[in-house]
Design a protein around this nucleic acid. Sequence first.
DNA 1: ATAGTGCTTTACGTTTACGTCAACGTCAAG
DNA 2: CTTGACGTTGACGTAAACGTAAAGCACTAT
Lengths: 127, 127
Amino acid sequence: MTSAPTWTIAQVAEEFDVTHRTVRHYEDLGLITPERRGTQRVYHRRDRTRLGLILRGKRLGFPLEEIRTIIDLFDAPRGRRTQLEYVLAQIDERRADLDQRLRDVQDAIAELGEFERRCREDLDKLA
Amino acid sequence: MTSAPTWTIAQVAEEFDVTHRTVRHYEDLGLITPERRGTQRVYHRRDRTRLGLILRGKRLGFPLEEIRTIIDLFDAPRGRRTQLEYVLAQIDERRADLDQRLRDVQDAIAELGEFERRCREDLDKLA
DNA sequence: ATAGTGCTTTACGTTTACGTCAACGTCAAG
DNA sequence: CTTGACGTTGACGTAAACGTAAAGCACTAT
């Protein structure tokens, strides 16, 4: 039988191209909660998944505190109807935010394309 | 004849929902350069356009210094061939960055949708 | 004349997101 | 058994992006 794979802090830091300090900082803020084997941290698949979500959230410009509420949402208890409805409401809020980001990116890409077109026109005129 | 419209710092701050301090901070960093009429700042359409670009860049998580290089690109001299080719190269770099952001947002939205589907399933089972 | 409104600069304070030592524990290899 | 290699916890430092007084100018309204 193959037991669940684990990683050291050096390995996850290497894999996600961040420093040990960064990984521990995320733990301080409660974004990841690695197992402890004695004094050492042991990272599981779940921690790596979360790290991926954290870094993507960062690329999208979300503050770490907000990222925490978002990824905690995925692990939130959903047993009772009220809990599920709360989670669904949160999802709607998040989606509104992401939709705005999507429009922003698309607009920026479109403007960049338009700008490139004008530059190429100028370049052609110089030919 | 209608002369070009101008705005005070209070008006642009109000319009873009930021503080005076923020607007002046962007000026300190060289992101906008309003006219001076005596000691007072006078904002033109160009300044408002740039403010819009700045805030969108911020929503996308770009640091202000990087935003400056981006919007300066739009006003960069493009007379000589070498200049145009430099600008076009910069555009490609920016686009690569934005494409990454686009993928990030799309992935995040997709995951959120999938998560919502599972929540609704759970909700149905409770019915 | 003075009070009020709006703008100005100067300058120190704050929050976020880590960087950077310092000092110490632990375990396998020589 | 001591020397690395790797890990740990503080604790202070720093850069970015403003917040927040403090103090003063300019014009208008009473």
